[in-house]
Simulated assay, not measured.
Amino acid sequence: MTTIGLIGSGNIGSTVARLAVAAGHDVVLSNSRGPQTLQDLVAELGPKARAATPAEAAAAGDIVVVTVPLRAYRDVPVEPLAGKVVIDTNNYYPERDGVFDALEDGSTTTGELLQQHLPQAHVVKGFNNIWFDHLRTLARPAGSADRSALPIAGDDPAAKRAVTEFFDSLGYDTVDAGPLAENWRAQRDTPVYVTPYGVFGELPGTPASAQVVREALAAAKPTAA
């Protein structure tokens, strides 16, 4: 099994950690407030989890999930992520993150921003289009008729294969949305964002097959962020 590093342990980060531990992976959690603030979550997750600093989580992970507010992406440690597969969950909310001109005018994407910050890492966009409670509850074993799919985007084929295998272990199929420049297709307010999996804030969710996700990605219209 794989060690998953988490930079950010909020709703998505903690949900990924729970799914990863359930799948047999080790997890190393971190946040901006220090390992001591994660002790309750680590205790809940059990012996396959530990808390660390972001740099330690980056160094420990075979795959590292960056799940921080977009405004903080420049704080992600660079050196320990060189050569690593990095899953970027970030979404752009100007009211929270401040205005990013390059996102407003559509000249780049959130995934490309993180890739520019981590030039030696292999960034794959993922986990950014689903509400965390739907992510938690829609996981299904491989071959299940009601298995859901999640979109990914990235420039490195080997990194996308690693993420696909990881998602499979968590209970999800994947749909390849193309290179990192295409991750706008899964950003907020696009057809594949949240709604294929049900109503935001409501359980149970609705399984979204690979075909449903593929059609939603194709229906996205290129606009500024």
Rank of each mutant, 00 (worst) to 15 (best):
M1V: 13
M1K: 06
I4Q: 09
G5M: 06
N11E: 09
I12T: 14
G13E: 04
G13M: 03
G13C: 06
S14V: 10
T15Y: 03
L19A: 05
V21W: 06
A22I: 15
A23I: 13
G24Y: 00
D26T: 14
V27S: 00
L29T: 14
L29R: 08
L29K: 10
N31C: 10
S32H: 11
S32K: 08
R33F: 05
G34N: 10
L38P: 12
Q39V: 12
Q39K: 08
D40K: 10
D40N: 12
V42D: 09
V42K: 07
A43K: 15
L45V: 13
G46F: 02
G46W: 02
P47M: 08
K48P: 01
A51R: 00
A52S: 12
P54F: 01
A55L: 06
A55S: 12
A58Y: 00
A59N: 10
G61T: 04
V65H: 05
T67Y: 02
V68H: 00
L70P: 01
Y73N: 05
R74I: 14
R74M: 12
E79V: 15
G83N: 01
G83L: 01
K84W: 03
V85A: 01
V86T: 12
D88C: 08
T89M: 03
Y92P: 00
Y92G: 00
P94H: 01
E95G: 07
R96I: 15
R96W: 12
R96K: 14
V99I: 15
F100D: 12
A102F: 03
L103I: 07
E104V: 15
T108P: 09
E112D: 13
L114T: 15
Q115F: 06
Q120R: 12
V123Y: 00
V123A: 01
K125C: 03
K125L: 02
G126I: 07
N128T: 04
W131P: 11
F132K: 03
H134M: 04
L135N: 08
T137F: 07
R140D: 13
P141A: 00
A142F: 02
R147T: 06
I152G: 08
G154Y: 02
D155H: 11
P157F: 00
P157V: 03
A158T: 14
A158N: 11
A158R: 12
A158G: 05
A162W: 04
A162I: 09
V163H: 10
E165P: 01
E165H: 00
F166Y: 08
F167H: 14
G171M: 09
G171E: 10
D173F: 06
T174Y: 03
G178R: 03
P179Q: 10
L180A: 09
L180C: 07
A181F: 05
N183D: 15
R185A: 09
R185I: 11
A186S: 15
Q187V: 14
Q187M: 12
Q187T: 15
D189K: 13
P191K: 04
V194D: 13
T195Q: 10
Y197H: 04
E202K: 14
G205D: 02
G205P: 05
G205V: 08
T206R: 11
P207C: 08
S209M: 08
S209Y: 07
R214P: 09
E215Q: 10
E215V: 03
A216L: 07
L217P: 02
A219T: 04
P222W: 06
A224F: 04
